[in-house]
């Protein structure tokens, strides 16, 4: 067998001390001699240590008082102000001193004044070999007396019964939530639903959206919706205006924008964070959670990061009064992928 050794030139090829190998071992010199501490030799040092411990305990008492000062003496008119900060600091310092005083005091006491002779205790095996044999015998007898080995009918029926019995405990959790159905495929957007400002709900005119701006949008009526947050989690949209020549809509999507105004779902197709960072010169959208980057000029194709699918686009147009409205719902489910998405 080709075996390299440790590489040191003066080490013979030698079997290591694997415990069982018959190799000469060093003689254990035993515990080093005990070295007495200052406090052991000098009564004055012991007295000094005693005083130090007492002072530490006194510091703890002062700390506790400090806590009460912080708690009762500070009036907080307005929590944004520095009063609360001061109170929090005093409570913290008070508690810290109270604790440090006791803790350091006790440890100092133990280190300097309590006996510091190391004690040797021998280890015992977890159990004795003989006891293990006895236990095996007892267990064997118990199993034998039940007859479970001799009566397979009982054993098998019992196993089946015991396997089945926990299932109700799982099934009873069925009503934790409704089945998904197709709610993930629909949002509040629909033909003619106006785009409104988040969070105020003010409708937006096409002329309000100037080149370079990014507007955070919710559907009209969202603030009054019954399941507001659930609807908002699907329906939030980012509205941006570019020079129309910067956009390159694919076939069938040419009229999804309006004069360079385009609306894209704000929910990341990765795991659902709001993709809210719009760089108006590069036309990139960045998700702050996992850095997926979408290129607005390529219909929000992913150009960096862990997301795969482009952000869904909301087809928009303007109504008779000049307000931006959706042409329809999103044409695909928004947000993170899920199994049934297809």
């Amino acid at each position: 067998m080709a075996r390299r050794n440790d590489g040191s030139p003066n080490t013979p090829d030698r079997v290591g001390t694997d415990g069982h190998a018959e190799v000469e071992r060093f003689h254990d010199p035993g515990l080093p001699p005990h070295r007495p501490r200052l406090a052991d030799k000098d009564p004055r040092a012991a007295k000094r240590a005693e005083k130090q411990v007492a002072i530490l305990f006194l510091i703890s008492i002062v700390g506790t008082i400090l806590f009460f000062v912080g708690y009762f003496a500070i009036e907080i008119d307005e929590p944004g102000s520095s009063d609360l900060r001061l109170q929090n600091l005093l409570l913290g310092l008070g508690t810290a001193f109270a604790m440090f005083g006791i803790g350091i005091g006790i440890v100092h006491w133990a280190k300097t004044l309590m006996p510091d002779h190391e004690v040797v205790e021998s280890r015992k095996p977890v159990t004795k070999e003989s006891e293990r044999a006895e236990a095996e015998q007892i267990l064997g007898d118990i199993i034998e007396e039940t007859g479970i080995k001799r009566r397979p009918l009982i054993r098998n029926t019992m196993l089946v019964a015991m396997i089945l019995a926990p299932f109700p405990a799982i099934a009873i959790f069925r009503d934790l939530g409704p089945l998904p159905g197709d709610v993930l495929r629909h949002t509040m957007w629909d033909e003619g639903v106006r785009l409104t400002l988040d969070p105020t709900g003010t409708p937006i005119r096409a002329s309000d959206v100037t080149i370079g701006s990014a507007v955070h949008v919710i559907p009209e009526g969202l603030n009054e919706a019954e399941h507001k947050l659930e609807e908002k989690a699907k329906a939030v949209v980012l509205l941006m205006r570019l020079n129309p020549e910067d956009l390159s809509p694919s076939e069938g999507r040419e009229d999804w924008g309006y004069e360079g105004i385009v609306a894209y779902s704000k929910i990341c197709t990765h795991v659902g964070c709001p993709v809210a960072l719009y760089e108006q010169q590069t036309h990139h959208l960045l998700c702050p959670c996992h850095q997926s980057t979408f290129d607005l000029t390529q219909e929000c194709k992913v150009i960096f990061g862990p997301a795969v699918r482009p952000l869904p686009q909301l087809p928009i147009t303007v109504d008779a009064e000049g307000y931006l409205v959706a042409q329809s719902d999103f044409t695909e489910p928004v947000g993170p992928s899920f199994w049934e998405r297809g």
Partner: peptide
């Protein structure tokens, strides 16, 4: 004592 120190 160490408990009090950690708390501190």
């Amino acid at each position: 004592g160490f408990f009090f120190i950690v708390f501190g």
